[in-house]
Design a protein around this nucleic acid. Structure first.
Lengths: 147, 147
DNA sequence: ATTCTTGCAAACGGTTTGCACATAC
DNA sequence: GTATGTGCAAACCGTTTGCAAGAAT
């Protein structure tokens, strides 16, 4: 079921253009076998069992690096700081990664959104769709290189 | 178009069980007429133009209060700290507001999710659906009072 | 009169940064 | 040999907290 070897993890890191260190290997493996969506602190505590000399700073840097190259996913902080909205009707937003603009994505989003079901007895209070990317203003600077 | 009077805002606050102060009025009005999904800091700077003696702490407390009673929406911090995930395929999660557990909501979510369209030339890199609520374990403690 | 809210300032905590040393390539 | 990554510790910054004074009901 999990017959994945060190060799495979190394290949995965290399395939993402990353230099390979035992710290990175340990961090990635920890996350790979974790089901709990751990925070940086939790990953740190976990990895520290095997490599007591590793530092929390390295874990932060490494996770951010992994995220940047698309190796892993980051769940929470969609924007840097909390952002508020008096319009409580539509909870769906497009967030520009460059200028941090948040645009509403109202009507066309609502219907597919509401079709998202709750699973396993989960009691849903809020539903939120976030599209992350680049707005039309910032797009040209970032997507223009090849198109 | 915006013929909403102070009286109306006061009613809105009262309707949400909130005591009325000029600070709350100013904060809510600022947010109500803002289209930019401002941060607490931005709201503070805005309100300060009219009420120079207001404090940032009050803005934080007030916004959080508004959010708690459902008067306003908070866009970003779905979880308290960043949480990571090695499974980059499905970006959809159910977050328990009580125990902070994050569960994957895989297959049944994917299709409606992908139907969410990009608007106004927005270049989408990541799509994220987050269901906030209570997991089956914590639900009983919070939803049991009436059912 | 009592309860809730404000303002101020200090504390908090997750995250980032700078730099010297070590390691990967 | 050179570029990149690591460890450590301090700095950062958005946010929260405690408390005395003030305002709302």
């Amino acid at each position: 079921m999990e017959g994945k070897k060190d060799k495979d993890f190394i290949s995965t890191l290399r395939a993402h253009g990353l230099q390979v260190t035992y710290q990175r290997l340990a961090i990635y493996q920890t996350l790979y076998f974790s089901l709990e969506h751990p925070s940086a602190e939790v990953v740190y505590q976990q990895v520290r069992k095997r490599f007591p000399m590793i530092s929390l700073g390295t874990v932060y840097k490494t996770l951010e690096r992994f995220y940047d190259v698309g190796l892993i996913d980051k769940v929470s902080p969609v924007t840097e700081v909390a952002r508020y909205d008096a319009r409580t009707g539509s909870h769906h937003h497009m967030v520009c990664l460059q200028c941090q603009t948040i645009m509403d994505a109202d009507s066309p989003v609502d219907e597919p959104m509401m079709a998202v079901p709750a699973l396993e007895g989960f009691h849903v209070l809020r539903r939120q769709v976030v599209l992350q990317g680049y707005c039309s203003k910032c797009k040209s600077r970032y997507v223009s290189s090849s198109s």
